[in-house]
Structures are given as structure tokens and as C-alpha cells.
Write a protein that binds this DNA or RNA. Structure first.
Lengths: 163, 163
DNA sequence: TTCGTTTTGTTATGTTATAACATTTACAAC
DNA sequence: GTTGTAAATGTTATAACATAACAAAACGAA
């Protein structure tokens, strides 16, 4: 497995051209879906783009309203179905504590990230740490619990908002 | 800090008299609220009892319907207010990935648990592990993120359902 | 007993998510 | 290219989860 000990979505202060992130993510998604033999339809791609466009985690109904603005009346299932597809393919993550979604920048391999959510600016960074993964797995194993999915979210203040 | 490296709510198969758990928890809650100078009113106490009575995590509206059965018409804010109070006092935990609540058996000290949630039987065990706490804190500190609250939930199969 | 605070009641509404079924689209087999 | 089938989308309705706002009651200190 590739080394993921990185902050994949930089904190809000990180000066990066988010447009590039989006383009790259969409291209990767396209390739990935082809290689998996699944269809990244226009609707799904557009939802993925809207999720990425929003720098911060975005709620399903916010995606819905943006979609409605550009395409006329749209109903919740349209959005939820696209989101479900994207979740299945690992192209986005759901932040449980926010009921919101963020793009994933390394969807190739299955993984559970650690999400650092700033209560002040609302930004969310996805972090990976093999030690954390191992530590938690050790614990669940020791208890005879067969772990399948993990939710790990930390709420607090990002470096920019601490300052 | 007391040693919490234990499974505080046993897995569903654990043969324990749950009624005792409930009684003990209610007594403790009573004492704790007195010592903190906050009021564990009848409504709050009853909600706490209902949460404990349910061996598995219980949703706010399930609490509501039980409350309505015994006390006549009850509205959501009644339940949510009680749940909020109990959360503030650390007497219950919220499971984000289930939108549900569980009693906490060691509310004296503030803590963030690890919740093991069985997708089969629906049981949830609260576990504590200082190494996990430290590992995660190390990571957030290293990134300059000031952690305040943590959500750590693992979904899978409990020992009984694996077998 | 009076006053201010906390708690509860009540009504309404906001937010998040899915069920169920009709229609359309993609695409492989012929 | 037509046709059959599966996948995807459209559409309507509703379920599930949560809070805002204001009125009334209960509590407890002065």
C-alpha cells in the first residue's frame, strides 16, 4: 500500500489552486471508473464536481440546490443516488458528524481516513496514519470484533483558526 | 485518570443482568448531578432510564414513542432537551453513524470512547484505550490541529455474530 | 412572597434521507 | 438496426431526524 501519511486535503489556509484539485480529481475518477467497468455518468460526474467545488464538506441538499439552479427541478433521490455511487467507488467520503460529503483525493485504494474538522472555518482535512489504523485494529481484534468500517472524526480548530 | 482499558458495555452475548446496569447507572447519575449542582429532573431521569433500558443504541424518536406511551402526547423537543442535557453531563453518548444514543457507564470523567457497533445484532460496546487516544492526539498535534471532540466508531461483527 | 432563572409544554417548521414505481437510456445479442 | 434486458434516472410521496420560537409552569434564592 502506498504511503498515505499525508494531509490529503490541506487546511483552508493552505494556498493551493483548488480548481486544479477538482480537475485532477475528476480525471482520476474518470479513469478509475473505466478501469473498474462502472459508469461515471454525467449526473454522477456533476455531483462529484459540485462536492469538490465546495472546499468544505457539503450537504446533500446543498448539492441539490446547486444542481437545481443549473438543471431545473431536481429531486433528492437524484442527488442521493449519485452520492451513494460515489461513496461506493470511494470517490467521496461522508462526514458522519456533519451529515456532509467531501471529495477523496486518493480513491484508488480502500481506506478509512481521519478527518480533522474545524469548528470555526468549517474546513475538513483528510489524514492517514498507519499507526492509528493499526492501533485501532489491534484493539478490535483483541476483543474478537471483526471490524469492517471505521468512522474517525476529530472536531476542533485548524492551524489557521488556532492562530 | 482511572484505567478505562475495558469494554464498558459488554457485547450482546455477555450474560449480565442488564437491569442491574440500569439501576446502577441511574444511581450514579443521581449522585453525579447532585455533586455538580445540576438537576436530574424526572423527565431527564426517565429519558436516561429509557436509553439504558434499550440494550442497543436507541433513536430519539424511539425514546419519544416510549415516553408518549406512558405519559401521553409528548413532543420531540422534550426528548431532545433531555438528551442534550444527558450528553452535556456525559451520562449518555451519541453514536453519530446511527443517529442514536447509548448510556455511558463511567460518566464521572470526560472521555471519548471507541464504539464497536455490530451490523448484525445492533449491539454497541464502548471501549477505552489510552494508546488509541494518544496515537490520535499525537497526529492532530503534529499537524497543528487543536482537537476538542472525537468520534470513533467501528462497524462490523461482534464476537457473537462472527461465530 | 416575589422575582428571576430554569425547565417544560406546544406549535410549527427545518433538515436529512428513502420507498416505490414509472420512464428513459445504454448496450449487448441477434 | 431492432430488440431485450439491465442500469440509470425521473417523479411523487413520505419517513426519519432535529430545532426555532414563544408560552406556561416550576424551582429556588432573596
Amino acid at each position: 500500500m502506498e504511503n498515505f501519511d499525508t494531509v490529503s486535503l490541506s487546511f483552508c489556509g493552505g494556498t493551493h489552486n483548488h480548481k486544479n484539485c477538482v480537475t485532477t480529481a475528476l480525471d482520476e475518477a474518470e479513469q478509475l471508473c473505466i478501469s473498474r467497468g462502472v459508469r461515471l455518468t454525467d449526473a454522477r460526474k456533476r455531483v462529484l464536481e459540485l462536492v469538490w467545488d465546495s472546499h468544505n464538506p457539503i450537504g446533500a441538499y446543498d448539492v441539490l440546490s446547486k444542481l437545481s439552479q443549473e438543471s431545473g427541478k431536481t429531486a433528492p433521490p437524484t442527488v442521493y443516488r449519485a452520492l451513494d455511487f460515489l461513496l461506493e467507488q470511494g470517490l467521496i467520503h461522508r462526514i458522519e458528524s456533519l451529515n456532509a460529503f467531501v471529495g477523496c483525493s486518493h480513491p484508488k485504494e480502500e481506506h478509512s481516513g481521519l478527518f480533522l474538522i474545524c469548528k470555526d472555518c468549517g474546513c475538513a482535512a483528510e489524514v492517514h496514519d498507519a499507526v492509528i489504523d493499526k492501533t485501532i485494529l489491534n484493539k478490535t481484534d483483541a476483543l474478537g470484533f471483526k471490524a469492517e468500517q471505521r468512522v474517525l472524526e476529530v472536531r476542533g480548530l485548524c492551524p489557521d483558526c488556532v492562530a
